[in-house]
């Protein structure tokens, strides 16, 4: 267990840029854009101008605060906190995707594999520590950054409004930052399981490729899909290939948080209640009731086993 902790810590050291700085910088840029929006709005002298500025959530904020119902005000503020995490999570998706793609390849390329292999570390612990770093640690950091950004944003707006004599401080107490954090943290294990097929596939490609693992990861599924499509075109009707592209999506994109929401995501736009309902833990976890979720997870574990085996026997040449 102690070894595992240090293995994960090592991943963090190596990928501090992606795991920590990418979310921090995204949050920072987001806040900066909002601040610029506020200043622009103030300079133009009328309140609505805030909403027109790109990247400015003032409109959302205004909307939330104008709700007559106190609970709805709270919900609206929560949605704002989610919205910052969502932006950071898109960045996280890219970070994790490329992290897995390089995780078992980069140290073979620069031969530092030989150093790691000179230590009494098992290959399964090494590979699993990378899985944990990518799908547990990285999202945890992203969630914390996301919520902090959200709180920062709310404070920024509250301060702006208080300059205009609108007292909103008491309204802010209707937001539920801890619930938002808890909700998101509880969703992380779901994310880790959901992402397994993608995790396994990317790590397998990473352990397999002698050069450019991304070629294997992307081109192979696309090429197979095109072959299937071609067979169908010839009228062979081997099988429909809709399911195939679904599977491809799962294998390549499930490291993007929230991708389990799938088509339901369109309902998120209809109001803060619907959006929150969709993100509620119980609801999110209903995806676990679908067979596809578990088939994917099992396939992901099989791919991981393959990655561990390759890690054991592939050397630096």
């Amino acid at each position: 267990m102690k070894t595992f902790y240090w293995l994960v810590k090592r991943e963090f050291w190596e990928h501090r840029g992606g795991f920590l700085w990418a979310p921090v910088i995204t949050g920072g840029v987001f806040l900066l854009l909002n601040l610029m929006g506020i200043i622009a709005g103030e300079a133009m002298g009328h309140f609505d101008a805030h909403a027109d500025f790109i990247g400015n959530n003032m409109g959302l904020f205004n909307h939330a605060l104008n709700e007559g119902d106190i609970t709805k005000v709270g919900l609206g503020l929560d949605v704002m906190m989610y919205s910052t995490t969502m932006i950071i999570c898109i960045v996280l998706g890219f970070v994790v995707f490329f992290y897995f793609l390089g995780a078992l390849y980069d140290d073979r390329r620069d031969r530092s594999l030989l150093f790691w292999k000179s230590l009494p570390l098992s290959d399964s612990a090494t590979v699993l520590s990378k899985v944990a770093a990518g799908t547990l640690l990285a999202p945890l950091i992203a969630v914390i950054c996301g919520v902090l950004t959200g709180i920062g944003m709310l404070l920024m707006y509250a301060i702006t409004l208080s300059f205009h004599g609108v007292g909103v401080w008491h309204l802010l107490t209707y937001a539920h930052p801890f619930r938002v954090i808890a909700n998101q943290i509880i969703t992380i294990p779901l994310y880790a399981l959901w992402a397994l097929p993608c995790t396994g596939w990317l790590l397998l490609c990473s352990a397999w490729a002698r050069s450019k693992p991304i070629r294997w990861a992307l081109l192979l599924p696309v090429a197979v899909g095109m072959m299937l499509g071609w067979f169908n075109l010839l009228g062979a009707r081997v099988m429909g290939n809709g399911w195939y592209w679904d599977m491809c999506g799962r294998i390549l994109l499930s490291v993007f948080p929230g991708s389990w929401l799938g088509h339901n995501f369109q309902y998120a736009g209809s109001g803060s209640e619907q959006a929150l309902d969709l993100l509620r833990v119980g609801n999110a976890y209903t995806v676990m009731a679908t067979p596809g979720f578990w088939i994917g997870a099992i396939a992901g574990l099989a791919l991981l086993a393959g990655a561990i085996w390759l890690r054991r026997w592939r050397d630096d040449t």
Partner: peptide, 8 residues
């Protein structure tokens, strides 16, 4: 040259 380049 096998120590990882990023490590301190």
């Amino acid at each position: 040259a096998v120590l990882p380049r990023w490590i301190r």
